[in-house]
Design a protein around this nucleic acid. Structure first.
Lengths: 343, 343
DNA sequence: GTGAAAGCGCTAACAT
DNA sequence: ATGTTAGCGCTTTCAC
């Protein structure tokens, strides 16, 4: 079924049928109803490509998922982010175009997306210091929203970010208040902006109490489960092992948990850094070594906000930077548990 | 830059330029080179929608990601599956269209994808018994490949599946050979085809040795971490707790591990059900309670195969069912560890 | 080996 | 309130 057939069937012109379906005001209500009923009856939907060609818009948003060349690994938070964004897109009749691409090839992909005009805008993930993608997209004139920020640039682009610094500062303060003095920070690659901010928060919490964070307890690498396992195992074998872990990713936290189990320690309560009143991603259990991880729910929310912001920008044609900093909260469950043995 | 401008620039007709770029044989090599160089220089790529409109093909594959209405949860294996499929698509100049949709709305989405002609084919995930989507897509004439199978239908559709039955049978046999007699099966919802097959394999392994599987050690539910934690905790509190766990999902396995830790048991060696010579997803450590999970690598491979099969089907126009059963192997690491205490 | 022209299915001026 | 027409950017006969 296409517009031509449908309009012949109805004894109307293509124009009128098109206008009726797209809610143009000049069409009479009687006609509109007749047209819409017929469209439903014949299961008619306008051909995406023809519509896009005529309007010059694709009604699609691109997400470029860079896959680590080293580990062939997809960052698992994408699943939740994508789910959040996808929800917004389908609610606004937009499609989501996914490009899974080796992180080396990212620039080429953006150029292609722009040249082929296959999307109206893109979402950028995991910005790095002085990220070249931002300049590129501005040059290409392709609207975009960054999930995260890069510290070293002026804020001349739109972004949505979790307040990483503050949430890690508070998480650290929470552990310090419990009496922990040897807190390990298992962090992401420091060239990633979020890892840098989280570390800042971790250090600030110590500094505010005139304590020194032990550099030997701070590691940063690509966040694999193996990395969590290796680094935590090594730390736990030391004469003075850490009494708590602050872990920057869920995946690495799995490895950390395994290491704690192997070391014969009890698993700690998981405390999540969460947004608003969203639920905990882990249930609490007996506290001995607390582990903090970022909650899935916040990632999903970030996906929704990025998507909404980008659609707004595209619809309004307004290219002045928008941004949104998501404040997080610590949710601690019903009891804070005992202080660590060695003080 | 578009074809018209490019051809004027070159002093050629649109036709010739188009033919040169699309490797039509009748164009002279000299012209082809000149055209391709110019295209690169001006960063020209054919507009996706115009090309699609002219050819009647979208060069895009749809993936409908159903999100559980109960848990608002995305099955995390999608990340790896998508990564595998995406790799194949980009290698073949296809786009991937993702629709994240409440599982209730799936049918509507398929109808729309077909009506709007926004994709050339789709991949179906997580087939259930007598899955209505299969009939629907056949009716719509939209080419598709199913990731998984439904047991109750004749094989008149194309699918790619892991040999779930056999891999779980072998995993169970491995545990039985180690001396385990109380093996827990933490399984997915039994209305999902894969869960049914895995259970079959589990039971077959017992039956082959004239052993009876304890029904109280077999649970099935939507595979959340919480489910893994709850069910394993409960089982471990019993007078006769299980000595090994066979877990149907990585996420649930995290919960199971947590429960094992809480119960004061040591974490088991992780043994993965893997395909071919792909690497282990977990490193082995001290054995006490073995846990089996399906490896991520197999999911990625399945994504690649589904994608490749679908592209082949579309290219050839051949609608006779193709299928592929992926055989799995157990990789056991370097030692099998001690038998369980209570035999 | 190259070009002219029609047409893919739709929207958007411009009539009426 | 409805219809006519041109055109979005490409591919594809058909002609030379």
């Amino acid at each position: 079924m296409n517009l031509k057939k449908l309009s012949t069937l109805l004894g109307l012109s293509q124009t009128t049928v098109s206008r009726a379906l797209n809610d143009y005001p000049e069409v009479s209500e009687a006609t509109r109803k007749r047209v819409k009923d017929a469209a439903r009856a014949y299961n008619y939907s306008a051909n995406t490509r023809a519509k896009g060609l005529a309007t010059g818009r694709s009604m699609a948003i691109g997400h470029v998922i860079p896959i680590s060349t080293q580990h062939e690994m997809v960052n698992p938070v994408f699943a939740d982010f994508i789910a959040g964004a996808g929800e917004i897109y389908s609610r606004n009749d937009h499609d989501m175009l996914l490009s899974v691409v080796a992180d080396i090839d990212e620039e080429r992909i953006y150029r292609e997306l722009a040249a082929k005009a296959s999307v109206d805008g893109v979402i950028i993930h995991g910005p790095r210091a002085n990220d070249p993608r931002i300049k590129l997209l501005q040059e290409l004139g392709l609207p975009f929203v960054v999930h995260g920020r890069t510290s070293d640039e002026v804020a001349d682009y739109s972004w949505v970010d979790v307040n990483n610094r503050r949430s890690f500062q508070r998480a650290t303060e929470f552990l310090l208040d419990l009496g922990h003095r040897r807190i390990a920070l298992i962090n992401g690659l420091e060239l990633m902006d979020f890892a840098q901010r989280r570390k800042d928060g971790f250090l600030a919490a110590h500094a505010n109490r005139d304590l020194a964070a032990d550099p030997a307890l701070m590691v940063s690498e690509e966040m694999t489960e193996d990395f969590g396992y290796r680094s935590a195992s090594e730390m736990l074998r030391r004469a003075l092992p850490p009494t708590a872990f602050l872990v920057s990713s869920m995946i690495a936290a799995i490895g950390v948990r395994r290491a704690i189990g192997d070391a014969g320690k009890k698993m700690g309560r998981d405390v999540s850094v969460i947004i608003h009143d969203d639920e905990l991603s882990y249930l609490p259990n007996g506290v001995e070594i607390p582990i903090f991880t970022a909650a899935k729910s916040s990632v999903r929310l970030a996906g929704q906000l990025c998507a909404k912001m980008l659609l707004d920008i595209i619809a309004s044609g307004d290219r002045t930077p928008h941004n949104k900093l998501l404040e997080t909260e610590l949710t601690l469950g019903d009891s804070t548990g005992p202080a660590p043995e060695g003080g």
